[in-house]
């Protein structure tokens, strides 16, 4: 499956089939410029359908981030399915090309495909916790906290890149509540938003509500 088909299945079915992306010499194959262009066109079209589900207006899409997120997800899925790739290749291809400037727009663009990261990490851990792929994915998870809500044992994450963006903060808070990820309550803004969202109805998120009930409001 090419990256073009991959993103389509990922977004619409949530089920993907991936072929190996490593050639006979063990080198990573890169998509052609035409494929890249087509991938971007499709991602932008899909994002138009996704956008109305968000609260407020998301930041503008950036091609670099959009493509990079899709490529990382594509590669990670491929490595998960095809286990014969050496760890150096995995680390090189997943960690050496991180977009340099991190802004709300970059976070949102990368997140469009990287939001599946928690599922990917769960699947990778199920295969083997020792797997170098798991390590790489956890590194990605720390770098992209918007996309990694619900991933356990990440430690503190830095959300300063997007926390001032209303739409992304709301998206983040929605994910914190949906996953019950109490580790993300350490940011005061997130804590306050989660409290606001749950209001009186702790049954909406019983686990988080217990944590909230133990933290006094002034904190």
């Amino acid at each position: 499956m090419t990256i073009v088909k991959f993103v389509e299945s990922l977004i619409f079915d949530g089920r993907v089939r991936v072929s190996t992306i490593v050639d006979a010499k063990g080198k990573i194959q890169s998509p052609s410029p035409a494929e890249i262009a087509e991938t971007l066109t499709r991602l932008r079209r899909y994002e138009e359908l996704y956008r109305p589900e968000l609260l407020g207006n998301p930041p503008g899409l950036l091609d670099d981030g959009l493509y990079w997120g899709a490529l990382m997800t594509y590669r990670a899925c491929s490595f998960l399915a095809h286990r014969d790739v050496d760890s150096k290749t995995i680390v090189d291809s997943l960690q050496k090309t991180v977009p340099p400037v991190v802004s709300p727009a970059v976070c949102y663009s990368v997140d469009f495909t990287c939001r599946f990261l928690p599922d990917l990490i769960r699947l990778a851990k199920a295969v083997s916790v020792e797997d170098p792929l798991v390590g790489c994915l956890l590194t990605l998870a720390r770098q992209w906290p918007l996309s990694s809500v619900g991933v356990p044992d990440l430690g503190g994450v830095d959300i300063s890149a997007f926390v001032r963006d209303d739409c992304l903060l709301a998206l983040y808070v929605d994910r914190v509540i949906a996953s019950g990820d109490a580790s993300r309550l350490d940011h005061p803004l997130v804590l306050s938003r989660v409290r606001t969202a749950i209001g009186l109805h702790s049954e909406l998120a019983p686990g988080l509500a217990q944590v909230l009930a133990s933290i006094s409001e002034s904190e």
């Binding site: 609260l55 407020g56 808070v173 509540i177 949906a178 969202a197």
Partner: peptide, 8 residues
């Protein structure tokens, strides 16, 4: 709806 959290 356009301003409420998803969980609601």
């Amino acid at each position: 709806v356009i301003s409420a959290p998803q969980i609601r």
